[in-house]
Write a protein that binds this DNA or RNA. Structure first.
Lengths: 182, 182
DNA sequence: TATAATTTTCAGAAATTACTGAAACTTCAG
DNA sequence: CTGAAGTTTCAGTAATTTCTGAAAATTATA
């Protein structure tokens, strides 16, 4: 059974509040927080108990967390219940969230923009509009490519990149030098 | 007056749908799309007309867009009405959106985590939880620093970085070499 | 196969969020 | 100061989203 200390309860509730800003709803956020801070896998009933929400809601929430590939189902010898655990490292989690959000927030717009930009502008107004739309399109495409790139990077390189911090600018300068002299 | 062709209407409506995923509501998304594709600044009434929404709603929406610093008020000689225009380049816009979302989505969590991590864990459960929380904290802090860094970068360098694409890995290797040899 | 344990579904209730429109407010010209 | 032109506010309503809980479905066991 999962009984939470006030400290942990605070965190779980906060994650619930933030959840809605991150693209899922309050209870899904709470469920995920709970699974992250719990060492042992939890059953759906334990989750419902710990958070005081209905069994049905837990079922739907777990489905959503699985669709984000943020939790993993787990089976325990001689127990018919399903148990759940947060998946992977925090890095993996951040990756999943970014990827999923990109899919939901950018891909549909990108695809609509591609369609729109195939048509020739019908008048001055559309001409101006298409120019702006082209810019948005290019930006989204860049961000998409870039984020795919980051995902492909090994965790160590990502770490290096992250720690680089204010060094980014310098490294970029360096790159120019390097390319010039080679 | 702003009368939209079907193509533009499609785009505006789509941006409305996406708006909710981007952190503002449908009408705010529509309003922003409208301002982006419109060359001339628009008055609040023109916006309300073009989108078929109430004057009051437009007023609240403009307030929100201004709080995101995505639109700019404009005065026209000899006209008492306020006119509005999307602010800056698409790059500026993306910057603002990232910054604003960071403030709303990460800063509060970061600050809560800092507090929680000040307290010593009371038992085994809290010990495990705090380890996870520390990881989340470090991750968020890294992302925050990194995004501040990107904002500080000049547009040209940003451009370079973006276009780098799959070259990121190589540049990182290079950096190691460079540092070793200096 | 029957039944017990568990999970999923989904109609309706509850909660939240967005929108309207009329009233209050502000600003400015005369 | 007055009133016309415009903007903002906000109480109430509408729309949307989330949550519950009981019924249906699934799965394992005997």
């Amino acid at each position: 059974m999962m009984k939470m200390t006030p400290m942990l309860e605070t965190f779980v509730m906060h994650f619930g509040e933030m959840g809605s800003r991150w693209g899922f709803n309050r209870t899904v956020g709470q469920m995920y927080a709970l699974l992250v801070i719990s060492e042992a896998p939890l059953s759906a009933n334990e989750i419902a108990d710990a958070l005081n929400i209905s069994r049905g809601n837990v079922s739907m929430g777990l489905k959503e967390l699985q669709s984000w590939r943020l939790v993993q189902m787990h089976h325990v010898q001689g127990d018919r219940k399903d148990y759940f655990k947060a998946l992977g490292s925090i890095w993996d989690m951040a990756n999943k969230v970014f990827e999923e959000r990109r899919k939901r927030e950018m891909d549909p717009t990108l695809s609509l923009l591609r369609d729109i930009l195939l048509d020739a502008p019908a008048n001055e107004q559309e001409k101006y509009a298409q120019e702006r739309l082209q810019e948005i399109h290019d930006l989204l495409e860049n961000i998409t490519k870039w984020s795919e790139e980051l995902q492909r990077l090994s965790p160590e390189k990502l770490e290096t990149l992250m720690k680089l911090g204010s060094g980014v600018g310098k490294v970029l300068d360096m790159k120019d030098k390097f390319l010039k002299s080679s």
